[in-house]
C-alpha cells in the first residue's frame, strides 16, 4: 500500500508523531520502544536504499542516490501491504529531469508538521552540535542547507536537501501536490493532542478510537520518550553528546534567544511565520504585515 510521508523540518515533532502513531497502531499495554520507531521507515536511510537499489550506497554520490530514490519508494510502496508511515526531513524537491523525489504513485498522502522556527533554532543547535546558535540561524536561512551531507564513518543517513526553513514549509504546503497534504502544528500537538492526533489518524484513513487515542498520547508523552532515552538511548540520536529529547516545549526560545537573534529569524521567515501565527508580539504589526495587505 502507498506511503504516508511524515514530513517536517528537523526538530519539529516528527519523532513525537511517529512515537504516537507507533503506539496507536500497536495498541499495547506499555509504551512502544523508541528504538523500534524506525520500523515505520526513514526515507533517507542507507539500509532502506540498499534493500531496493541493490548496490552499495556508499559507492554512490548523493546526486546519484537521489536519482534512484523515486524508484526505491515505488518499490517500498509495492512491497507493503499495510499503511506505511515514512519519516522525511527532505524538502519536497524535484530531480534535474523534473521527476519529484517523492513520486505520487508511491504516495497516499503527507502529514506536514510545522513548528515555530524560533523554537526550532534552539532545539536544532543542540541537535547539530553547532558551536553557536548564530550558525544554526544562518543554516535555517541558507537555501543550500542539507542534512547528513558529510559522508563519513558512522553516518547511516544520506544527504537530504532542506532548503531554508521557509522554503521547506512552502515546498510541502504551497505548490499543488498530486496527493493530499495534512498540516499539523507542533504547538497544536502540545496544546490539544487529542484533536491534533485524531486528525492525523483520520487523515491516514485509520479508525479513530478514543480509548486507543488517549493511551497512545499517554505512551508518547515527552517524559516517557525522555525516560526511554535516558534508560536505553535513542538510535536516531546524532553521534554527538546531546540528548535527542531535550525540552519538548513551545516558547522555550524566550529564555535563550537575544532580541537581535529573534529579529534575524523573523526577518528571514516573516511571511511563513505570520501564516502560522509564529510572529512574536511586536514583530507582527510592522511593515511586513502591511506589505501583506
Amino acid at each position: 500500500m502507498s506511503i504516508i510521508w511524515l514530513a517536517s523540518y528537523p526538530k519539529s515533532g516528527n519523532t513525537w508523531l511517529r512515537a504516537f502513531l507507533s503506539n496507536y497502531l500497536r495498541d499495547g499495554d506499555e509504551p512502544a520502544n523508541i528504538n523500534e520507531l524506525e520500523k515505520m521507515g526513514i526515507a533517507s536511510s542507507h539500509s532502506l536504499f540498499e534493500r531496493y537499489a541493490g548496490v552499495e550506497s556508499s559507492d554512490l554520490t548523493a546526486d546519484e542516490i537521489d536519482t534512484c530514490r523515486p524508484e526505491v519508494y515505488r518499490m517500498l510502496a509495492a512491497a507493503n501491504e499495510d499503511v506505511h508511515f515514512v519519516k522525511v526531513h527532505d524538502a519536497y524537491t524535484f530531480l534535474p529531469d523534473g521527476r519529484p523525489l517523492f513520486p505520487a504513485q508511491a504516495t497516499q498522502g503527507a502529514v506536514y508538521i510545522a513548528r515555530n522556527p524560533l523554537d526550532v533554532a534552539v532545539s536544532m543547535r543542540h541537535h547539530m552540535n553547532d558551536t553557536h546558535i548564530d550558525k544554526t540561524i544562518a543554516r535555517m536561512a541558507n537555501p543550500q542547507a542539507t542534512l547528513a551531507a558529510s559522508v563519513k564513518c558512522g553516518n547511516n543517513q544520506f544527504r537530504q536537501k532542506l532548503l531554508t526553513w521557509s522554503e521547506h514549509v512552502r515546498s510541502w504546503l504551497d505548490a499543488s501536490k498530486p496527493f493530499p497534504v495534512h498540516l499539523v502544528r507542533y504547538e497544536d500537538m502540545q496544546q490539544d493532542p487529542r484533536i491534533a492526533f485524531a486528525q492525523v489518524v483520520a487523515f491516514a484513513g485509520l479508525p479513530v478510537n478514543d480509548v486507543r487515542l488517549a493511551k497512545a498520547i499517554r505512551f508518547s508523552r515527552f517524559e516517557v520518550l525522555q525516560q526511554q532515552e535516558a534508560e536505553q538511548g535513542f538510535r536516531e540520536q546524532p553521534g554527538n553528546h546531546a540528548t535527542f529529547f531535550r525540552q519538548g516545549q513551545a516558547g522555550g526560545w524566550r529564555e535563550v534567544l537575544t532580541n537581535e537573534q529573534v529579529t534575524r529569524i523573523v526577518s528571514a521567515h516573516r511571511d511563513v511565520m505570520r501564516r502560522f501565527g509564529y510572529l512574536p508580539e511586536g514583530a507582527g504589526d510592522d511593515s511586513g504585515m502591511m506589505n501583506d495587505e
Binding site: H46, S47, C153, G154, N156
Partner: peptide
C-alpha cells in the same frame, strides 16, 4: 555490522 557501524575502523 550495518552501515556506519564502524567495521573498517
Amino acid at each position: 555490522g550495518g552501515i556506519g557501524a564502524g567495521k573498517s575502523t
